[in-house]
Design a protein around this nucleic acid. Sequence first.
DNA 1: CTGTTAGCGCCTTCAT
DNA 2: ATGAAGGCGCTAACAG
Lengths: 355, 355
Amino acid sequence: MNDLSLPESSAAPADDAGAGERPKSITLKDVARLAGLSPITVSRALHNPRMVKPETIEKVKQAAAVIGYIPNLLAGGLTTKRSRLVASIVPQLSNSMFAETVQGLNDELAAHGYQLLLSVSSYSRATEEELLTGILSRQPDGVVLTGINHHPGVRKKLLAMGIPVVEAWDISPTPIDIAVGFNHERVGEAVARYLLDKGFKRFASVCGTDERAVLRRRALEAELRRHGIELIASHEVPPPTTLALGRQGLYAILEGGHRPDVVVCSSDVLAHGALIEAGARGIAVPDRLGIMGFGDFDFAAHTHPAISTVYVDKRGVGTRAARCLIAKIEGRRLDDQVIDVGFKLVERDTTRIGG
Amino acid sequence: MNDLSLPESSAAPADDAGAGERPKSITLKDVARLAGLSPITVSRALHNPRMVKPETIEKVKQAAAVIGYIPNLLAGGLTTKRSRLVASIVPQLSNSMFAETVQGLNDELAAHGYQLLLSVSSYSRATEEELLTGILSRQPDGVVLTGINHHPGVRKKLLAMGIPVVEAWDISPTPIDIAVGFNHERVGEAVARYLLDKGFKRFASVCGTDERAVLRRRALEAELRRHGIELIASHEVPPPTTLALGRQGLYAILEGGHRPDVVVCSSDVLAHGALIEAGARGIAVPDRLGIMGFGDFDFAAHTHPAISTVYVDKRGVGTRAARCLIAKIEGRRLDDQVIDVGFKLVERDTTRIGG
DNA sequence: CTGTTAGCGCCTTCAT
DNA sequence: ATGAAGGCGCTAACAG
């Protein structure tokens, strides 16, 4: 009746792992044989319990546990056309806001039984496109991209695939499918107006060269110009932004002979670097120099003085992206294809001057 | 001859994406028909080019490009038993060293044509085990775990699967398969000896509660005790470690009436927080208070004063893990099943006192 | 160099 | 409530 030899100790020796010949896999059929049922009944017991008698389910579960059955999603996905896999491409992971977003994305996906296939584009559109091809060959149920500027092939492939797509961190009037983010130009303008209101007059910028940072800085410049003000110095730094680059940025500006009364940084990490450089030089912040960050990283509230910044729900971008995707995957309609998560100016010490 | 209607514009309308009914997929067969060849020849042209006439390859590539063929790895993997997928479980992503490791892992994997399936355990062994089941059902070619303490089921399942496994961030005499990390107890001891050498006498600790941090702190305590010294205060903080927690840690120690002359932190982030708290209180570092970090995060060299710490090749752990895995997947034997990446004390300003 | 046959492990469809 | 047949898309193994 039971022609399976139950594994005594249950495994191959450790130092044999991965040597090419894997133990022949335990399949639904094996469970079925052991339980004295047909494979399809076992499948149902495992995935559609209410199509099967409780008693049978019990038998199946026992048998599965005994032989250590692990379903093969490749095979499953091949028939169902559902992979329970969501792929995401981020520009970078270490030292960036994207880690938070990925964490949020992952958590929400995991909570709904989806897994995350992660890739890193290193801020290259070409790389992104190449990665996408590999990704799509795994038949993901959905994809999360960063930003709204992509290699043309990206949009085409994604549409051909017909799966839901979220473009995160930015919004666009013409998303590939769904966009979850905020308007970076509004941020630039808001920061400009806020700082002008505070009475700052001589603006400098330490700005990353990534797309979205540049968008914010340009909008800042434009708004300043509307008030008759030009940036007196602008220092660009390549991603990833680090504290060291922030220090160097302020250093370069000051050594260049410029004397800004406020420096606008494209991330809190840069702002923190600038803050430290100011401290090292004995420049009082904010009295002699204001500093503005972006992102509201967790440390920003706890530096001394605390960094004024722009709050963005980094984690929320990820969780919302996940929710949108899951909704569409499960056939629900979305109210909006474009979700603006907004932002919020956070005044802290580094810009708190005058009245 | 060619009975395929070439798609004019190549896609479904955007707002139709993901509504359940995907465009029927384009398969190898379609390419074959268009190229006037058999499916297997197309397969070979794409994956084993040198088994096929150059002329034929060209025909195949053309045909594939024309209809936008994307291979289906689920189907491919089902037959070959190779998924080109490596899975990793990390305790957490945002705000941690693990992001660096994951980035290194991903880069190295991508360079060899593997993709990364990422999961987050939130420091829970039970979660790790559950995640693993889901992961294994995708038939990964290899797995990277964090740490060496796992739910018993983890080892069992992994061995049953017979795939290579790396346990990262720690080393063990009895790894499941491969270990890539370093000995945290040696770190604790080394830090203790170094600080004793510098002449510090009244030690306090701000330490995360995660496994490896605790291991280091215990070894530090033990080493101190061998020199007749006890920690005068110890403050524990839950992961994720943040700058704020570092500040609070020092705050709590000082408000508790303790007067350490050095505070040992289980991460640079905590150390940075302590440094800021000291600065805010006007406590001179290192003269009145030494501060020791861990990890050598990129900011540590650039704070003011710069943070003394322990360098670990965070990224390298990831790249080496990837290399070991790939080697085993491809059937090569490893010289060592346990790779100690070591660590290095980095003296900077926050402990530079006396002679 | 190219093609035929068969089957990976599972689930959909159609019976019973 | 359970089962039998067939096929998802691809590639191994064996021809020729």
